[in-house]
């Protein structure tokens, strides 16, 4: 049972990772390190830093996010990420899709009970 559940959570996590990244950038732009640390701290997501950067690259290549470099006074130059319009559309679509999915699940639960 535990193995099955572990496997299931991995599947769910993988499906939600990109949405989580886009959601994290929804209200403001964030630099990589800050974004990664924020995502790593989300309970249940089980994400590592190594997971995030390839996804960021992929999302950028798909045009859902954009990046820019900015010099930092104390540390290394920072790379800021922000949602593009396509990205906002994508997150909105994902949100609708997910709500529909949960709604369907609720319906199933009610019928079941």
């Amino acid at each position: 049972m535990t193995d099955f559940f572990d496997n299931w959570t991995v599947q769910v996590r993988k499906g939600l990772l990109e949405m989580c990244i886009l959601t994290a950038l929804e209200d403001r732009e964030r630099y990589g390190y800050d974004l990664v640390k924020g995502l790593v701290g989300v309970p249940g997501l089980g994400i590592t830093e190594g997971t995030v950067y390839p996804l960021l690259s992929r999302l950028r290549r798909h045009g859902l996010i954009a990046s820019r470099l900015e010099e930092s006074s104390g540390g290394p130059a920072r790379k800021y990420y922000a949602l593009t319009d396509d990205g906002r559309e994508a997150i909105a679509s994902m949100d609708v899709h997910l709500k529909t999915l949960f709604k369907g699940m609720k319906t199933l639960q009610r019928k079941g009970s």
Partner: peptide
């Protein structure tokens, strides 16, 4: 993969520096 390996390498390097 769909990720840009050079970009990811650069990002991780930046992360290490941070």
């Amino acid at each position: 993969s769909e990720a840009d390996s050079a970009e990811v390498e650069e990002d991780i390097k930046r992360h290490v520096d941070e």
